[in-house]
Structures are given as C-alpha cells and as structure tokens.
Design a protein around this nucleic acid. Structure first.
Ligand SMILES: [Mn+2]
Ligand SMILES: [Mn+2]
Ligand SMILES: [Mn+2]
Ligand SMILES: [Mn+2]
Lengths: 141, 141
DNA sequence: AATAATTTGTAGCAATGGCTACATTCTGTA
DNA sequence: TACAGAATGTAGCCATTGCTACAAATTATT
C-alpha cells in the first residue's frame, strides 16, 4: 500500500510535506548562490512576508530540519540537507521531464513547483525512464 | 504572463482553487453514479468528516458553484457544472498521460489527484499531444 | 559614536480545512 | 403514529499560512 487507500487523502499528505520540502530546497539553493541564507532571501524567493518565513523556520527548526539562532543566518541540519538533496533531485526530474514533452522552461518551472510534491516514486521512475530515452522528435510534420 | 511572476505564488493560487475543483468534480461524478449527491457521499469520497464537507459546501454555495438547501441533496449551478466538466477533462488527461508513460492505473489516479491542479494549459496541451501519438512501446528490450 | 536604514522578531487578525461533541432533522420501521 | 437510526447542522477546538503594525536588534553611514 505505498499509495494509501484514497487519492484525496494522499494529496493531503503530500501537501503536509510540501512546505518543508520547498523551504529546505530553497535554503540549500540560496546557500550555494550567496554563501549564506537569510530570512530576507527566503521571503523574496517565496514571495511571502518575513513573518511567514520566520514562523515556518521555527517549525522546521523544531522538526530538526533547520538550524538557526535569532538574527542569524538560516542553516540546514544533516536531515535538512538530506531532504534538500532529495527535493532538488525530484524537482529537476519533473522540470526536465516537462521540458522533454515540449513544455517551455518557464512553464516547466512553474508547474513543477506544485506537481513535484505529488509525483510518487513510481511516477518519478517513469519520468526518468523517458528521460533516458533518445529524443523522439516525434512530430516533425 | 499566463504563469504569474513566481512559481511559488502560482502554486499557492493553484491550491486556492483545488478544493472547489475537486468538490464540483466529485458532485458531478456522484450524481451520475447514484442519481443524487448527498453530504454523506462526499464525506466518504473525500475521506473527511461530514462537518468539513458541510462547511466547504457552504462556501462553494456562496461562491455560486453549488446549489443546496438544508438537509437536501447537493447540486451544481451552471457555473459549477462548467467547472466540473473542465475539471473532469483535465483529470482524465493527467491520468491517461501518466498511464501512457508507464504508470499503473492506481498510482496514476493517486498522483493525478494532486498534480492535476498544477498542470497549466501549456502542460495539458503537451500531454494531449503525446496522447494523440501512436504508442511508442519504446523500450521493449 | 551617533544616527539612519535594514533586518528580524512579536502580537494579533483572517481564511482554510481538519477534528469531536452535541443538537436537530429526516427517514424508515415497528 | 411513535420511535430508532441515519444524516445533517452547529459550536467550538486546533494547525497552517497568509497579512499589517509595531518593537527590537543588527548593520551601514555619517
Ligand atoms: Mn514545490
Ligand atoms: Mn498541490
Ligand atoms: Mn480531480
Ligand atoms: Mn484533485
């Protein structure tokens, strides 16, 4: 029963994990790009107020994903790093797959940001299988 | 700017529409299957309490999507019918597409229930384009 | 060093969607 | 018709994620 008994229940579970996945991924991204990640960086990236970011970071800190002291930079715990890596991999898979079927990069990035959290292992494997295949260029017509 | 400026903002907008889309789709489904739709039917379908269903139906009624009187059956307004039809079409597209790339029907139904709300027009068109192509049966090995 | 600007934190509000417990209404059956 | 059971409604709780307004801390500038 990897999927749970009900599609709607599964979707709700996916949504419950979504914030953590996106935030740790963003933190890792920003650290790579800017050296350190600040609350401000996240509020700009997510397009929400710094208040929302702070509250979410507190929860992720309680959950053992984020390491942080007041007014300090935002870091990831080992578990946060793990989750960030997995999230980034999954994100890239979904974006690449959408592009492969002919979606523009901008739209792929937009749609993947939501779709990624609902793609099960089986679906991700199917996407990767397709990415491994040579480009079809199926409809040249 | 069909996508809005930010992937996370778009995802939040998608989520804001999600409940309405799934409920009107479910109501239409249940009406076809059972003749009428009751609160009970929805609470079983969605796997939530009847209280949650009632509150959501009140909101959808205020929004002009659902027609309803206390203790009566749950119906759709013309606008609700429209949305239900569009949602069902989109749902079917995503399920069929996932199956086409090799995902089992059960998993396709589960993943599509969440993914569908994040698939833009462009992505849906790409999926339908692929569905129109002959089965590749690409990797027979 | 003093001051200004930026950043972060906190208080408190709203909307949404979960829930249990209890009240009411409806329905079917005795 | 009376009653029992099922369905629906209401009250009120919690968690999450948005927000503005204001307070405190930090950083930059003079
Ligand atoms: Mn995302
Ligand atoms: Mn979603
Ligand atoms: Mn659906
Ligand atoms: Mn859905």
């Amino acid at each position: 029963m990897p999927n749970g008994p009900n599609p709607f229940a599964k979707t709700r579970r996916d949504h419950a994990d979504e914030t953590a996945e996106d935030y740790v991924e963003a933190i890792a991204d920003i650290e790579v790009a800017s050296g350190t990640c600040r609350v401000k960086d996240l509020s700009e990236r997510m397009q929400v107020s710094h208040v929302t970011v702070t509250r979410i970071l507190n929860r992720l800190s309680d959950a053992g994903l984020v390491a942080r002291e007041p007014y300090g930079p935002v870091g990831l715990t080992p578990r946060g790093l793990e989750m960030a890596a997995a999230s980034r991999t999954r994100h890239e898979t979904v974006v690449s797959f959408l592009e492969r079927i002919g979606v523009s990069n901008a739209t792929a990035e937009h749609d993947a940001e939501g779709m990624e959290h609902h793609a099960s292992k089986e679906t991700l494997e199917a996407m990767r299988r397709h990415l491994r295949q040579p480009e079809d260029d199926a409809n040249l017509g």
